[in-house]
Design a protein around this nucleic acid. Structure first.
Ligand code: FES
Ligand code: FES
Lengths: 141, 141
DNA sequence: CTAAAAGATACTAGAGTGGTATCATTATGT
DNA sequence: ACATAATGATACCACTCTAGTATCTTTTAG
């Protein structure tokens, strides 16, 4: 999987905040986006620690978007919630493979990773918001 | 991870068989490729069931390659050992997302998957054998 | 002072990967 | 025939990752 739920939920939350343009609480996000509450809170905390949103405690508090949608890149969220994008790690993880530089398979997988990285690096929140009306709208079941 | 150890080990085993040109037992593969024995056996069994190799029981028995290296494509091994290549599955796995067709993110991830699939579909064992002297040679640590 | 919010943090359940172990079956060579 | 060497089938285990829960503390509005 290129994208996990954490990342996806983060995108949805940021999208919601961007569209609203005002502060929103975790409770509101939870309800509107139909995402489990405790999980949403954890995600928002991480977004807060990393400068995507500002948080305000106390009654009426919540989260406020700190960046413009066009400044939020998908790759950053992926790195934040999933760690570095890596599709071609040699199967001998830690003990770095001595032959990696001359390994044909590694080279090919590296090409794929490079392409993926490029595509993901270009995608920003603004694009996601404009690209499809449907993303982030939850389904009926 | 695009490729797991099972797949990688399968490639190594097939490569060894192709280079040898004769039957080889699991014990031999295990020793030469430095892969855990029981694991190697499991992999060979799966390769046997799927027509990549023929197996002969009894003393002196082992596995014989059934296909030409240029007829063995990496994508087939990936499918066999890891299931279908899928990088862009919607986070709402089973309950198919109603909006998938108009989802911007899904479209972008689909592009990446398509590219990956294309690259992997073209790679065959012959290429891997010629491509780099080093692949499949185990390291010293 | 109370209640509503977020912060911090620990925990759990399930799936997938990597690997082991055991017993049954088949074939070979003497 | 029989011991042995090989694979077949199958069940099991340990570890990691993902998704999600739960609890307690801190801050702040009214
Ligand atoms: S085998 Fe390690 S990089 Fe190719
Ligand atoms: S949100 Fe389900 S396919 Fe995009």
């Amino acid at each position: 999987m290129l994208i996990t739920r954490s990342t996806d939920y983060a995108v949805r939350a940021l999208k919601y905040l961007a569209e609203k343009g005002k502060e929103a609480s975790a409770a509101e996000l939870t309800q509107k986006l139909k995402i489990p509450r405790a999980f949403m809170r954890k995600i928002m905390q991480l977004l807060g620690k990393n400068g995507f949103v500002e948080s305000r405690k106390g009654p009426g508090g919540g989260f406020l978007l700190l960046k413009k949608p066009e400044e939020i890149f998908l790759i950053e969220l992926i790195k934040l919630f999933q760690g570095q994008v890596c599709l071609n790690e040699c199967v001998f993880k830690k003990k770095v493979c001595v032959n990696k530089s001359s390994c044909f398979l590694s080279k090919k997988l590296g090409e794929i990773e490079e392409y993926a990285y490029l595509v993901l690096s270009r995608i920003n929140l603004k694009e996601i918001m404009e690209g499809g009306r449907s993303y982030g709208e939850t389904q009926n079941n």
